[in-house]
Design a binder for these strands. Sequence first.
DNA 1: AACATGTGTTTTACTCGTAAAATTTCCCGG
DNA 2: CCGGGAAATTTTACGAGTAAAACACATGTT
Lengths: 202, 202
Amino acid sequence: MTATNGARTPAQDTAGTDTAGGTDTAPGAGTRTAGRHDTVATVVRQWQAVHPELDTGPMEVIGRINRCAALLQQAEDAPLRRAELSRPEFDLLGALRRTGHELTPGELARETFSSGAAVTKRVKQLTERGLVERRGDTRDRRVAHLRLTDAGRDLVDGILPDQLAYETAVLSVLTPDGQGELAGLLAELLSRLEGHMGALRA
Amino acid sequence: MTATNGARTPAQDTAGTDTAGGTDTAPGAGTRTAGRHDTVATVVRQWQAVHPELDTGPMEVIGRINRCAALLQQAEDAPLRRAELSRPEFDLLGALRRTGHELTPGELARETFSSGAAVTKRVKQLTERGLVERRGDTRDRRVAHLRLTDAGRDLVDGILPDQLAYETAVLSVLTPDGQGELAGLLAELLSRLEGHMGALRA
DNA sequence: AACATGTGTTTTACTCGTAAAATTTCCCGG
DNA sequence: CCGGGAAATTTTACGAGTAAAACACATGTT
């Protein structure tokens, strides 16, 4: 995190030339690798200069995750924009496609990690665009069942390969081994976070 | 768009989390680690069932980065909320604190990876709260120089240790070695992304 | 000096997400 | 059968970010 700097949205960076000098050996833990500098390393160095007593180790991980996410999202959005879809919209359609069956708004919210209200709005728009259809439950009239229309399915199926190709291209800056290691470490972090997350409330 | 790494069949590269076959984990002989599954593994499995011909490798990395970022942000926000600060606000204050000198709105926008308009709004609010001060440039009357007030500096310095402690706790689900490896891989990815990013425009 | 052009910042109009309240419907005990 | 909850979803009010236009000022040119 960090408030350090962060990683927010639009990064049309010019990546100024940033002079960075030193090695980015991490505190706390063995760092491996690569001589290159990223913006997070610079930020961490700045913080260390101001507060040398603090362990900035977590920033090296969390700051980078956030920054990567921001940069990647921007990249990922490119293929979607061609279809006039936002990422959250595509996530919604994707959830319907990949599960293969109808979903209720509530399930859709859980599946896409968004609020129910957000789902309501998105479904409304996607329905108007003819990509999603709704059907009321016969037993319980509170719930609705949502499914893709043929057009919706075709749209998802058309976009997905582009999306994956784009992601593949972006990730090709890492070796396949590197990608595998990274995926593995993130899986471990994620699975534990998803498990223990409720426990932390500071 | 070269699929340089395209030949990655989802076999064993993520250390056991992505077994496409059974619904249950088959951790057993993993080289490292935890057989747990994360939500991303489930999603990838669903996609593979629907589109077996696609290489879902990139999802394992990018999906997890995004999901981790989302979870971590939620966690990270906890210490900030106590100070009634949003993450982007803290990023702005942090940028002023860590650079040590005044910044113009434009520099601040670049530093925090946000739009100029967003910076304008945040500065306005933070100024009203007495955390930031502005001063006009004497030479060029278009530009403003922004700096932290004493209260602003104290606030940042008060929050930062909590923030780092919180992050440390969250990351403690990984071993120090794991954290180091992860930081290294992300640094490599990030540095290359930040370098080559401009080149990709699909 | 006057103008065209460019740069730094703010404003405007609009979209999207959220939290909290409202709505509709179900279910259960009495 | 009736009322009190609880559950699923939608509505409302609002905050925050964005893109594009508007401003304000500076600078180079002729």
